[in-house]
Each structure stands twice: as C-alpha cells, then as structure tokens.
C-alpha cells in the first residue's frame, strides 16, 4: 500500500509506520481529499468504508490539532489510518465529497475541537447546543466546564486560560 501511495504522491505523503499493525500515513491538509479519493477508488485498495473521523488535541504543542481518519476496505479486508495536522487556525478540507458518512463525524469533530472543515455542507454543532461557547474536548477546557447560569459548579472563566 505505501508503495502505491509513494508512487502516486511522490513523497508528499509521509509513512507513519504501523504502530499497532495498522498502516498510518501523515497527510498535509491540502492533500487530504486527493489521498482519500485515491485510496477509495484505486482498484487494488478500495477503501470504501470510512470507519471514523476524530480530532486529537496535542496541547501544548505547536499546531496542536490533528484529525485522524480510520479507513476500512471491505473487499480486501484491511485497515488504514490517515493523520492530518491542522494548521492554526485549525482548518481541514472536508471529505464528505468522498464518503457521505463523514458528515456527522466532521460535525462532531468541529463541535468538540473547533476544527473547521472547509466545504462541509452543514457544519453545525451536533452534541452541544447552538449557543454553547467553547469546545469541550480541548485539553484546556476544564472537565467541570465554565461557570454560568446552568453550571454553578464550573470553573471561573477568568481563572482559566481560555483562548477562544
């Protein structure tokens, strides 16, 4: 698989090894749609099933947000993982054009981490309510939440290092 990717993308997609037996690739945000479409449509790979999209917050590293895609190929029974470091502000093109299932996954990632998915047809919050402020899965968001009318036990906003 990484041979094919190497040929097609000419070193622009880095091989992340296989830490848990799953082939991992490190992809730049502007290449992600192209790589996904290639993996899905190549007759010898056919990663037709997008299992999962999720965000990871590597706070306090630089460019802290990462989007991780887990793919599965139903015809060839194999899995692959794509990792995409989003820049600052975190922005990644959407893959809803490749797999429709990415719709809610990306909405969830946006809701929890505030990662923008460019070109997403319907990027709204999915779990939290529309008026909610902040992105709860970020590492600098307190577990108790911030103090407000609904959450008297939350942390004081001024005390925490809130940055959004």
């Amino acid at each position: 698989m990484h041979q094919k990717i190497g040929e097609r993308f000419d070193g622009r997609v880095l091989d992340g090894g296989a830490p848990d037996g799953m082939q991992t690739f490190l992809v730049e945000p502007d290449l992600i749609v192209e790589v996904c479409r290639f993996l899905k449509e190549d007759p010898e790979l056919r990663f037709d099933f997008l299992a999962d999209v999720c965000g990871v917050d590597h706070y306090p590293e630089e460019n802290r947000f990462e989007v991780v895609y887990h793919l599965y190929s139903i015809p060839f029974i194999m899995r692959a993982r794509l990792k995409c470091r989003a820049g600052d502000p975190p922005k990644v093109p959407t893959v809803t054009g490749v797999w429709r299932t990415a719709n809610w996954h990306e909405r969830e990632t946006y809701d929890m981490y505030g990662i923008q998915f460019d070109g997403h047809p319907d990027l709204r919050r999915i779990y939290m309510w529309e008026e909610f402020e902040g992105f709860p899965m970020r590492k600098d968001f307190p577990l108790k939440g911030y103090k407000d009318a609904y959450n008297p036990f939350g942390e004081d906003i001024d005390a925490g290092g809130r940055d959004d």
Binding site: D52, C54, V56, D57, V68, N103, W104, E108
Partner: peptide, 13 residues
Amino acid sequence: RMKVRAPSFVNLQ
C-alpha cells in the same frame, strides 16, 4: 485520548 466509534451514531445518519 479515547475516541469511541459508536455504531448507532453512524447508523442514524
């Protein structure tokens, strides 16, 4: 980080 890929979440789509 623990991410749960919940089948119902996706099926509901």
